[in-house]
Design a protein around this nucleic acid. Structure first.
Lengths: 87, 87
DNA sequence: TATATTTGTGTATTATAATAAACCATATAA
DNA sequence: TTATATGGTTTATTATAATACACAAATATA
């Protein structure tokens, strides 16, 4: 059994993804916050792996055009019968 | 431009996925809440598409062995350079 | 260098997710 | 039928995410 991924690691990864996408489009935390109607502090905390609400996460995902992809991934999981469909 | 997926739809889909997985393993909302250290009301609201915290969502995902899959999906997004890598 | 911008951090307040406890309707089992 | 279990809902309280400031430390730009 390989090391299981932890909730903490997923949150860190989510934050890093946000930071990476944001920097790719060369916008500041302040800019992103403004465009999403959030405070910069909320973006700041999210990018540093802190807890957040689903609305915050999905607003950010939507801004970087990742919502459709997420939705389809969820649809696929629904059709996946087995727990570990690895093969 | 095809209909864009909304944040609301993703939350509904997340809730349905939880409900579906839970029923597949024949456990009640109460059971799931107990096992995750959450209240039944939190599960109830999440399954009905209400807002929730990332911790709640990830606890549920982890319980149904979906955390690793999510983590890998995020890693893949990080390597995806273009916004719409459709081709 | 100096200046501006961005990020990280702190504090107080507000908004709201989470909890705990009930209650009712429905479904399932005895 | 009568119990039992489950899901949906309400109310009150608690915990905490989000906000709005401020300020310092980096980072980039002139």
């Amino acid at each position: 059994m390989i090391d299981a991924v932890t909730i903490w690691e997923v949150k860190v990864q989510l934050g890093e993804l946000c930071k990476q996408q944001r920097q790719r489009y060369k916008i500041s935390q302040e800019d992103l916050a403004q465009e999403l109607g959030l405070s910069r502090y909320t973006i700041q905390k999210f990018e540093n792996g802190k807890n957040a609400t689903l609305d915050t996460v999905l607003k950010i995902a939507n801004h970087f055009n990742l919502l459709e992809k997420l939705y389809q991934a969820l649809k696929n999981l629904e059709n996946t019968n087995d727990i570990n469909s690895l093969y």
